[in-house]
């Protein structure tokens, strides 16, 4: 399967929720030391619900499309509920198979979200790998 699917390229070229928020409740930025891709995510939270989200970053199509798709998914959701978002959820959104290196590109946005919202610093899916 081609990882350069129309859907991925659409999100890459016209990303949703791109930009920063004024006075966000949560703001977090991180880069992938393997390739230098960087994503910053801002969240505005009211009564436990994510009412607004913005993100900025640079990197390959996969990392940027994943951030666009993820922010679409979480807007309007309870902060507690998105704690359950897993590596597989993000990969389902992308809809393409990723090798071990590109996997980090695909999961960077989710990592930033979880680190910013819950202080979870590891890579999604690696929490209990052995």
């Amino acid at each position: 399967m081609n990882i350069y699917e129309e859907d991925i390229l659409d999100h890459y070229e016209n990303p949703s929720n791109y930009g920063t928020l004024e006075n966000p409740d949560i703001s977090y930025e991180e880069d992938n030391p393997l390739c230098g891709d960087k994503i910053q995510m801002d969240l505005t939270v009211k009564d436990g619900v994510i009412v607004d989200v913005g993100w900025r970053g640079h990197g390959c199509t996969i990392s940027q499309a994943a951030a666009s798709m993820l922010t679409e998914r979480i807007k309007g959701q309870c902060l507690e509920d998105i704690k359950k978002l897993s590596k597989d959820d993000q990969l389902d959104m992308l809809g393409i198979p990723l090798g071990p290196v590109r996997l980090k590109c695909g999961l960077l946005a989710l990592k930033v979200l979880k680190a910013g919202a819950y202080g979870l610093k590891g890579w999604p899916g690696e929490e209990d790998e052995r």
């Binding site: 081609n2 990882i3 350069y4 390739c35 891709d37 640079h58 990197g59 390959c60 199509t61 996969i62 590109r102 590109c105």
Partner: peptide
């Protein structure tokens, strides 16, 4: 074009 995407397309 990000270098990763260049490499990704060449890999195809």
């Amino acid at each position: 074009i990000h270098a990763h995407d260049v490499a990704g397309i060449l890999d195809q």
